[in-house]
């Protein structure tokens, strides 16, 4: 059964195509280039119709752009590292998951990680229409172009901090009312991150 679900997870690949709000994308990219390293804690809240209560998890994202590495940790659950284009994932027990690279859902995670690492949201692929906030807020909305994908993902909204150094929140709305909210803490720009953080959990 998890396999069957996994088959459908691939729909989650983030993508961008027709973009309005080019200046925001440029500013986001420029802001990211000014920050060689970054650490930002977050809280994830999954509001799923499957469950009565939200599933809340804390974690931290660490980025070192000088070595092209990003670590995404769900504290107590899993660690995923993107380094030199290679993706690795360790489970709660610290054991590397062979299945990670075969997980059809991984492209979704990978898309987000690549965008965060490079600061270039244009790099996400071409299945979504990417729109900047019409009111001028530092926010991007991704809406699937393909009706088949829209049956799983309604929209993704990313709000950035005023200084564009990091996202402030990310909301993924699924069809049927499910949603996953990320709330990001104040980032630590220029954080000293040991290289070993990108080698193992």
């Amino acid at each position: 059964m998890p396999r069957s679900v996994a088959l459908l997870l691939v729909v989650a690949t983030l993508a961008a195509g027709e973009v309005t709000g080019e200046p925001l994308l440029d500013r986001l990219h420029a802001a990211s280039q000014a920050l060689p390293s970054l650490r930002v804690a977050f809280t994830q809240s999954k509001l799923l119709a499957l469950f009565d209560e939200p599933v809340v998890t804390r974690g931290v994202i660490e980025i070192d752009r000088r070595i092209g590495a990003l670590r995404w940790e769900f504290t107590g659950h899993s660690v995923t590292v993107l380094k030199d284009g290679r993706l690795r994932r360790w489970g709660a027990e610290g054991r590397e998951e062979a299945a990670a690279e075969r997980d059809p859902g991984m492209p979704a995670m990978l898309g987000q990680m690549r965008a965060l690492l490079s600061g270039d949201w244009r790099t996400v692929q071409d299945l979504f229409t990417l729109t900047a906030d019409p009111a001028g807020a530092s926010a991007l909305t991704l809406v699937p172009k393909d009706a088949a994908i829209a049956r799983y993902i309604a929209r993704i909204t990313v709000r950035f901090r005023a200084d564009l150094a990091a996202p402030e929140s990310l909301r993924l709305e699924a069809a049927g009312g499910d949603a996953t909210d990320y709330t990001f803490a104040v980032p630590e720009p220029g954080a000293l991150i040991a290289a070993t953080r990108f080698e193992r959990p």
Partner: peptide, 27 residues
């Protein structure tokens, strides 16, 4: 297994996908 998978924080879409076919018959 469905519940465990949907609760995983690094799993973003199981919840909505599984509502259509929780027993994975399509697969």
């Amino acid at each position: 297994a469905l519940g465990a998978r949907a609760r995983r924080p690094d799993d973003q879409f199981t919840g909505s996908a599984a509502r259509r076919d929780p027993l994975g018959l399509a697969a």
